[in-house]
Design a protein around this nucleic acid. Structure first.
Length: 429
DNA sequence: TCTGGGGTCCTAGGACCC
DNA sequence: TCTGGGGTCCTAGGACCC
C-alpha cells in the first residue's frame, strides 16, 4: 500500500497567478495580514533571495532595482481555489485527507497493481487544467518518504511533477541525497543537534539505532526514524479531526482601550463560531489571549490567556462572542499597549448529541438562534463576508461611521474575488 | 510607523489522593 | 516525627508542521 502527498506549488502565489497570467515567470510575493511580512514567494522571488517572513517594509530597500509583484493576502480566494483542487483529489483517490490549506494525503489502498507514477502525472495534469494550480506529487510506502519524494518532484523537472519511491534501492538513494534539515518531522533545532554530531543527510539519521534515537530525542522523532526506514507508523486518524480552532491577528498599530480591543475580540469570536458551523460542530470551551508587542523591548510587556467553559456546548455567534468578552474582561489591564489578540475554541464535538445543561436550556430560543446564524451565514456567503455582523463587531471610524473588521485592517494590494463574490466577477464584453 | 496565523503532540514537574 | 511509593490530573514549555 502506498501514500501520495499532493502539494500545491507556492500556493498563494499560484492562486493569484490564476487571474494574472501575465505574472508567470516573474517575481511575485504575497503578504500576511496587515501587509506585515512575506508569507509566499514565487520561484523567481526565492531565487532573488527574498526570505519567508521578511518584513514588507524592508523589501523595497533590499531590492531597489527589481520589479516585484506584491499582493495582500486574500484568503477567500485561496480557500476557494484550493477547495477545487481538493475536490479533484477526492475523485482521484480511494481515500484522502486534507493536511493543510495546500496539501492532501491520499491513501492508495488497492492500487499497487497500477502504474502509480502515471496516475500521479495524470492527476497533476488534471488539476492544472481544471484549476490553474500546479502541484507536486510524492508517492511512497510511508508518509515521511512520500513527503521526501514530493520535494524531488518539485525541484527536478525530469520527474514531470510526480516522484515515486517504490524500491529499496530508490529509498536508499533518496535518503542519501536528502539534507537532514528538510526531513518532515525534523525541525531546525533537531537538525542543528544532529548536524553537530555529523549527520548531514536523512541517510545518516536513518543509520542510527532506534534505541539511540529514542534516548536522544522523543517518541515523535523515533517515528520519523521508523518512517524513513520504510515502516509506516503515523496513523491516518492523527491528521483527521481538529481539536481546537483559533482566530487571531496582529493589529495595525497598537491598541490601548478596552472598547477597541473588545470589538477585535468579538470579531475573532464570530469567526470561530462561523468555522465551527462550517464543520458542523460545537465547542464547550472558549478562550482569549492578548499580547503586547514583543519587538518593542522599550515597552512594558504583558501576555495572558483565559478560558471559560460554556454551560452548553455551542456554535452560536452570540454565545461565543459573549463568552470571549467575559474572558477579555478578566485579563485586560490598562496601561499596556496591545499588539495582538486571539480567540480559541476547544472541546469540539459534532453538533448532534449536544449535552445540554438543563438549567440553561430553552428549546425555543435555541432554535431561533440557530436559524438566525444559518441565515446570516448564507447571506455572508452569497454577498461576501461581513455583509451582516453583530453590533459588537462594528468599529467606529474616524469620521464617525461604522466599519467592519476587514476595513479596519491594512491590505493595500488585495486582488479581487472573481470566484466567490458576485461584485468581483469580471464581465467580458 | 511597519516585523503572520493556525494547528498538534510530548514531557517534566507540581498538586493531590491513597 | 519522618518517610514511602504509586497513580492521576493539570499546566507550562518546548518541539514540530504548514
Amino acid at each position: 500500500m502506498y501514500y501520495a502527498i499532493v502539494d500545491c506549488d507556492n500556493c498563494y502565489v499560484s492562486c493569484e497567478r490564476v487571474f494574472r497570467p501575465d505574472l508567470k515567470d516573474k517575481p511575485v510575493v504575497v503578504l500576511s495580514n496587515n501587509d506585515g511580512c512575506v508569507v509566499a514567494r514565487s520561484n523567481e522571488a526565492k531565487k532573488l533571495g527574498i526570505k519567508a517572513g521578511l518584513p514588507f517594509y524592508q523589501l523595497a530597500g533590499l531590492f531597489p532595482d527589481t520589479k516585484i509583484a506584491v499582493f495582500s493576502s486574500n484568503y477567500e480566494l485561496y480557500g476557494d481555489i484550493t477547495g477545487r483542487v481538493m475536490a479533484i483529489i477526492r475523485d482521484a483517490a480511494p481515500e484522502y485527507f486534507r493536511y493543510s490549506i495546500d496539501e492532501a494525503f491520499c491513501v492508495l489502498d488497492g492500487m499497487d497493481h497500477l502504474d502509480l507514477k502515471k496516475w500521479g502525472e495524470e492527476l497533476h495534469k488534471k488539476i492544472l487544467k481544471c484549476t490553474g494550480m500546479p502541484v507536486s506529487i510524492g508517492i511512497a510506502r510511508t508518509k515521511t518518504l512520500a513527503k521526501m519524494a514530493s520535494h524531488f518532484a518539485k525541484h527536478y523537472p525530469g520527474y514531470r511533477h510526480c516522484c515515486i519511491i517504490d524500491s529499496e534501492d530508490r529509498r536508499r538513494k533518496a535518503l542519501k541525497l536528502y539534507p537532514i534539515e528538510d526531513v518532515w518531522g525534523i525541525g531546525w533545532r533537531y537538525a542543528a543537534r544532529l548536524s553537530a554530531k555529523g549527520d548531514k543527510t536523512a541517510s545518516d539519521f536513518a543509520a542510527h539505532t532506534k534505541e539511540w534515537v529514542r534516548a536522544s530525542f522523543n517518541i515523535v522523532a523515533t517515528r520519523t526514524w521508523m518512517e524513513l526506514n520504510g515502516e509506516d507508523c503515523i496513523p491516518n486518524e492523527e491528521m483527521a479531526k481538529k481539536k481546537s480552532i483559533c482566530t487571531s491577528r496582529s493589529f495595525n498599530g497598537m491598541v490601548k482601550d478596552m472598547e477597541t480591543l473588545k470589538t477585535h475580540v468579538a470579531n475573532f469570536a464570530a469567526r470561530c463560531s462561523e468555522k465551527l458551523r462550517q464543520q458542523d460542530s460545537v465547542a464547550s470551551v472558549v478562550g482569549v489571549f492578548i499580547d503586547t508587542n514583543r519587538f518593542r523591548e522599550d515597552l512594558m510587556q504583558y501576555s495572558k490567556f483565559q478560558d471559560i467553559r460554556l454551560l452548553t456546548p455551542s456554535n452560536s455567534t452570540q454565545s461565543i462572542v459573549q463568552a470571549a468578552s467575559k474572558c477579555l474582561e478578566i485579563i485586560y489591564k490598562e496601561d499596556f499597549q496591545y499588539k495582538r489578540a486571539g480567540v480559541i475554541v476547544m472541546g469540539i464535538s459534532p453538533t448532534n448529541g449536544i449535552q445540554t445543561d438543563f438549567a440553561d436550556y430553552d428549546a425555543e430560543r435555541f432554535e431561533k438562534i440557530k436559524r438566525l446564524d444559518t441565515i446570516i451565514d448564507k447571506i455572508n456567503k452569497i454577498d461576501g463576508t461581513e455583509t451582516i455582523v453583530l453590533g459588537s463587531q462594528q468599529y467606529t471610524a474616524k469620521d464617525g461611521k461604522s466599519i467592519v473588521f476587514s476595513d479596519a485592517i491594512k491590505h493595500d494590494f488585495k486582488s479581487k474575488n472573481p470566484t466567490t463574490r458576485w461584485s468581483d466577477i469580471i464581465v467580458l464584453k
